[in-house]
C-alpha cells in the first residue's frame, strides 16, 4: 500500500484498520504519525459533536386504532386550501360532492380525502424489497381490475373506503420511498387533478370510466410510475 492510499483510508476511517493498512503503518513512521494525529483529531471531533442536550419535551401521542389503522391525530397532511388551488389552475373535476369517511369525517373534495387517507395507513409507509403474492393482489383488485406485472414492485395491498366505495389501495416501491396507488374505477374525471400535502405530491389521472390516484414523496419521479401503472391496469366491466 502506498502512503497516499493509506492516508486517504485513515482520513475516512481513522479507527478501522485493514491488515494491509496496519502493515504499512508498521513500516512507515510518517504515516503512523499521521494515523495518530487523525485519531487525536477524531477524539476532539467526538467531543465537539457531543453538544449539551436541553430538556426535551415529548409530543402528545394519541391512541392508534390498530384494527382499521385509522389514526386519531388531527389531519396534518392536507395543505389548505387544496381545492381552491385546484379550481384556480386545473380543469374542473366532474364530481364535486361531499365525501365521507367511515369515521364520519367530511371532506369537500376527492383530492382532500385521498391525501388525508394516507395518514390513516401507516403500514403503507413501509420501505421494503418484499413484494406481495399474486394471490394477495388478486384478492384485493380482482373484482374490479386486472393488473399486469409491469407496474413495479407492489409491497402492500388492501381494500379501503374512498368516497363511500371500496377501492384497492396499493403501494409500489419507488426511488425515494413507497408510492401509494389508489384504483378508483367509479370516479370518472375529465382531466388530471394534482394532489399536494406536507412532503408529498401526486395526481389523480383519468383512466377510462374511472381514475387512478398516485402519490409519493415530493422528490419521487412520479411520471415514470404513472405511465407504468396506467399501462398495466385494465378495468373489469
Amino acid at each position: 500500500m502506498q502512503c497516499d492510499e493509506y492516508r486517504e483510508l485513515i482520513a475516512a476511517t481513522p479507527s478501522g484498520l485493514s491488515a494491509g493498512a496496519a502493515e504499512h503503518a508498521a513500516q512507515c513512521s510518517a504515516c503512523d504519525a499521521y494515523r495518530r494525529s487523525m485519531q487525536s483529531l477524531d477524539q476532539l471531533i467526538s467531543r465537539a459533536l457531543n453538544i449539551d442536550i436541553p430538556e426535551l419535551a415529548m409530543p402528545e401521542l394519541a391512541d392508534i386504532d390498530g384494527l382499521s389503522n385509522v389514526v386519531s391525530l388531527p389531519l396534518r397532511r392536507v395543505a389548505a386550501p387544496v381545492w381552491l388551488g385546484l379550481a384556480a389552475s386545473i380543469a374542473v373535476v366532474s364530481v364535486l360532492a361531499v365525501r365521507f369517511l367511515a369515521n364520519d369525517a367530511v371532506y369537500p373534495s376527492l383530492s382532500e380525502e385521498i391525501v388525508a387517507h394516507l395518514d390513516h395507513e401507516p403500514g403503507a409507509l413501509r420501505v421494503t424489497t418484499e413484494a406481495i403474492s399474486a394471490e394477495r393482489l388478486e384478492s384485493v383488485i380482482g373484482e374490479r381490475a386486472r393488473m399486469d406485472s409491469n407496474a413495479g414492485l407492489i409491497s402492500y395491498a388492501r381494500s379501503c373506503v374512498i368516497n363511500g366505495h371500496t377501492v384497492p389501495h396499493l403501494v409500489i416501491q419507488g426511488e425515494s420511498g413507497p408510492v401509494t396507488v389508489l384504483l378508483l374505477p367509479d370516479e370518472m374525471i375529465d382531466a388530471a387533478v394534482p394532489l399536494e400535502g406536507e412532503g408529498i405530491r401526486g395526481v389523480i389521472l383519468p383512466v377510462g370510466n374511472g381514475s387512478i390516484a398516485i402519490i409519493g414523496e415530493r422528490d419521487e419521479p412520479l411520471e415514470v410510475i404513472e405511465k407504468r401503472v396506467v399501462d398495466s391496469v385494465q378495468w373489469k366491466t
Binding site: A57, P59, L61, G66, N69, D119, P122, G123, L125, R126
Partner: peptide
C-alpha cells in the same frame, strides 16, 4: 417533535 409523531404513527411498520 415531527419525527417522533411520525415514528409513533408508523411504529407498526
Amino acid at each position: 417533535q415531527e419525527a417522533m409523531l411520525r415514528a409513533w404513527k408508523s411504529l407498526d411498520a
